[in-house]
Design a protein around this nucleic acid. Structure first.
Lengths: 329, 329
DNA sequence: TTAGTTTATGAAAACGTTATCGTGAATAAG
DNA sequence: CTTATTCACGATAACGTTTTCATAAACTAA
């Protein structure tokens, strides 16, 4: 492989001049520029990234931590992140944590070893205490999931309001016995639950413990939840699902057991992924502006990188959330 | 940030010895090892990746080119790739080409600039001629999509056989008028079409040009296709869909127009993604062992990296394909 | 003219590692 | 008691860039 030295020799110039041409620095005569280009072409020269990164002390790469790519929510989020990233010449390093604390930490290590300039959490497994120290290695942003104790910029939705809207919709359709499912580990999950409870309490409705499900967001879990519900003596008439995947699983299993939706059991989802529209009946759900979250997040990242701020000033960007009424409620 | 030099000084040793400890080289006394560990801890030292990569002439990173992550096929494929990658200490660089030739080339550039040691195509936009020269920069493998003129290892399915099976299933269910949809740009698409045609010809059935659709694999396209079909005077009674997404789109739209499936129109998909099971009625489809393809591919990659072979011996690994009968045919 | 800028280049010093080589000391082999 | 071998370490030279710094030439202003 050709190096900058080879190019310099062939062009009859110094490494410095070649470097200046590569990086579009001023003060190089057109003539020599052409000489360099020609030599680069002839030798099929491409600068070695590791050397550049080492010297420049910059990688122009950002790590994006997602729990899993098979949950379609995250590919959409990445779509948004990527749009702004490419505009700014940034490379994305997509890292799947699979909800694993150790993996998450190993990805934080990318920041310490200077493999990336910044890092974005879209979900978070460890305590903030554990993560805090990594801040000095570069900008960290939270997108989607959040921790109130974290002194970093956050791009998120008002989950409380979102789930309140959803719950209220169920209630206004006449449901008094409503089950809830959704993770409650993170703060996001907790807030969703909060919004749900607020609506229920406002209408003086019971939030019964046996109607609470804290499973992970997957179709399988949705199916399981429905089976549990049908086996109950005192059954809820509606389910508030913490994700479209769960909602879809519930609908699917309900139908295979011969239940009608929404007559026998109503379901509301969360996210508004393509599958929401696909099931029969289509899932009423709470839409998150996923792509916009991604874009906004990356905009903040680029501005932080530009002003070199390993920002630990907390800023919260809240995006709007919207109820999409279809036929499952 | 602390460097290896700082660690060496604090431990009262040379950089060389510290490096030996970091890389688990033999011939370091336990005593000094401990000194080094202690110093590293005290200084919160982490080796600079760029420096390591530059010096070692190795990145332990592999680029994976996918068209898009929002097509769930690829996250599953990545799942398989990743499993084997982490076992071997390799990092995955996931690159979305969005079916764009220029982007694809820009990702190939990762190989030239030594940002990755090898590269995996799961789809391919450019001619092989254009790509060929990149081979000397490191091992290239094709997974899923393939080009017969490419002298690199290929992990794939027998697409001809797969679509033959599917088409035959439709025919055996009594369908004589069968529409086909699926991309025909790549060789994979061409082979699928070939299998389809083989079955049709075997049963002396017409492959009518107006029943051929060459759209991209998305739910929207499926919907569009169905609308076109319903507007025809001479309608097919069954559709061979080139992907589950298309199949699902067709089913969805058919139902919203009041058509019964499979009575009014039968549909068969390809891939066996989770959505296939979700629609009503569940989609009969041709299952690809996606994860296994990923695993096999990464195994080949690691072995190529191990024996330093910028392999240009063609080897074809064909994985089994299976018809999953549900209710849409 | 002369002094002061701007322009154009190269030499050499970083950036932070690891690999090679050399050199003793310790151990083993005869 | 030599003479090989193995072991344990440090100096130093890479790896391939970019960024000073120095210098000279070419303009500009007086």
């Amino acid at each position: 492989m050709a190096t900058i030295e080879d190019v310099a020799k062939l062009a009859g110039l110094s490494r410095a001049t070649v470097s200046r041409v590569i990086n579009n620095h001023p003060y190089v005569t057109e003539k020599k520029k052409q000489l360099v280009y020609q030599a680069m072409k002839e030798l099929e020269y491409y600068p070695n990234s590791s050397a550049q990164r080492l010297r420049k002390q910059r990688t122009d790469a950002i790590a994006v931590l997602v729990p899993s790519l098979t949950n379609p929510f995250f590919p959409f989020l990445i779509e948004g992140l990527e749009m702004v990233a490419v505009e700014n010449g940034l490379q994305l390093l997509i890292c799947q944590t699979h909800h694993n604390k150790e993996k998450e930490l190993s990805f934080l290590n990318l920041l310490q070893t200077k493999q990336v300039d910044g890092l974005i959490f879209t979900s978070i497994e460890n305590d903030w205490e554990t993560i805090a120290s990594y801040q000095e290695c570069g900008p960290i942003i939270m997108c989607n999931e959040y921790k109130s104790e974290s002194p970093v910029p956050v791009v998120r939705l008002d989950q409380v309001k979102g789930s309140y809207k959803g719950a209220r919709h169920l209630i206004e359709k006449g449901h008094k016995k409503v089950a809830y499912c959704g993770g409650t580990k993170g703060e996001l999950g907790a807030d969703r639950l909060k919004g749900f409870k607020t609506a229920m309490e406002e209408f003086k409705l019971d939030v019964r413990e046996e109607w609470m499900f804290r499973d992970s967001p997957s179709i399988e879990c949705g199916k399981k939840i429905l089976r549990e519900i049908t086996s109950m003596e005192n059954r809820p008439t509606a389910v508030f699902a913490g994700s479209d995947e769960i909602g879809v699983g519930i609908i699917k299993e309900a139908k295979s057991l011969g239940l009608r939706i929404p007559e026998d059991i109503a379901v509301i989802g969360f996210d508004d992924l393509p599958i929401a529209e696909l099931v029969e009946p289509p899932l009423t759900t709470i839409r998150q502006p996923i792509k916009d979250m991604g874009k906004k997040t990356m905009e903040i990242m680029t501005s932080m990188l530009a002003k070199q701020s390993t920002n630990n000033e907390k800023q919260v960007y809240e995006l709007p959330i919207q109820l999409i009424i279809r036929e499952s409620v």
